[in-house]
Design a binder for these strands. Structure first.
Lengths: 197, 197
DNA sequence: GGGTCAAGCGGACCACGGTCCGTTTTATTC
DNA sequence: GAATAAAACGGACCGTGGTCCGCTTGACCC
């Protein structure tokens, strides 16, 4: 039925079969390359070649190299996302806002070990996509917690905290400057605690 | 004299005459192009052509496009730098640390109007040069003020504050999200005031 | 002035991100 | 199954950042 005969809907979310297949092929190829050579060495040509598709397909599916990285990061971060939105406290709901903020920073910092490279790759070049859905979700969460501790402008505050937790900075401090995760976590805790007072 | 016959020193800072001349030509050409077309539209070819030198010279002098942008930003920011290091209070020395911190943020935000474009151009691509001399100087200053208000880890705190004041974020909030300078300034003031308490 | 040689120069060249457009696939309709 | 047209495909192509290397300049010494 559908009302109009011109509608072409097929895949789970309106994606044609070949399109969906190629998205998976590309994401898998990209993940392999990142695992093998590191995120910085990933080139769009290489991904396309490895996935066995044309280069144009990469850009059709993901818009840009950064878009591909974002998709990769979103897959890797889904678990984290669920943890802070509906997982157990103190990261998830149930704990007081300040504790959740501290836990959020701690988890973000710890997360860098695993997929910091990918996250950093999503940030650079053309400026971070501050309005990417995932980023917005993070800020929405932070803003809620900030509101919970009585900060006067939670929206801007969320941008501030997100900036403090950006992957480029965190990786730089840990890997290049040799700062321990504990030190960064402590500094973060001091920051948000001060905001709550 | 000089002790050794192999030393070739000429310009003010050990730069050969032609090299110094070309640096100026390139900086002037770059400034013109930024003023005409905007910082994003500046290409290394165009700068070289306009300056009447080869493209290789751009990279010999500045290392990369980002390096050229840094040099440009440093020229533009020299005034600001002197203002917070040795100018009149509350930005310069003489005022209490908290007031200086607030003034620093306010000045940084106001500065975006003028050379935010160039500053943003120095930040993107390959990740910000967090260890560029100018950045280090800013952080050194912030760390001193943070120490002055009793923050426990001023070094990391300075990285945090610098992240909050980065040009990409500030321009995004002002230009893309339509936030007023006053609002950003207020949020900054609340942040550093909280840290001081 | 003439010789010496590190420093500087220039532009051909390369790699990579991103675009374009003619061809192929796929879902749908009859 | 044949027809149809929207959607997707692929790879040649382009612009730009960055490198390389043979040639030139100019500071220093005599």
């Amino acid at each position: 039925m559908q009302g109009e005969g011109l509608l072409r809907v097929t895949g789970d979310d309106g994606e044609r079969m070949d399109a969906a297949r190629n998205r998976r092929l590309l994401l898998d190829a990209a993940a392999e390359i990142v695992a093998t050579c590191g995120a910085e060495r990933l080139t769009t040509d290489a991904v396309a070649r490895r996935a066995g598709v044309g280069k144009g397909t990469v850009f059709r599916r993901f818009g840009s190299r950064a878009g591909l990285m974002h998709a990769l990061a979103d897959e890797a971060g889904r678990e984290f996302q669920q943890a802070f939105m509906s997982g157990p406290p103190p990261l998830g709901p149930g704990a007081p806002p300040l504790e959740r903020l501290i836990a959020f920073g701690e988890a973000s910092i710890a997360r860098m070990r695993l997929d910091g490279q990918i996250l950093r790759a999503t940030e650079q070049q053309g400026g971070p996509d501050l309005e990417h859905p995932t980023q917005r979700l993070v800020r929405l969460h932070l803003a809620m917690l900030l509101r919970g501790i009585g900060v006067s402008d939670p929206e801007v505050g969320a941008y501030h905290l997100a900036a403090v937790l950006n992957a480029g900075l965190l990786l730089h401090l840990q890997d290049d400057r040799g700062m321990s995760g504990e030190r960064l976590t402590a500094s973060w805790a001091a920051l948000v605690t001060a905001l709550a007072a």
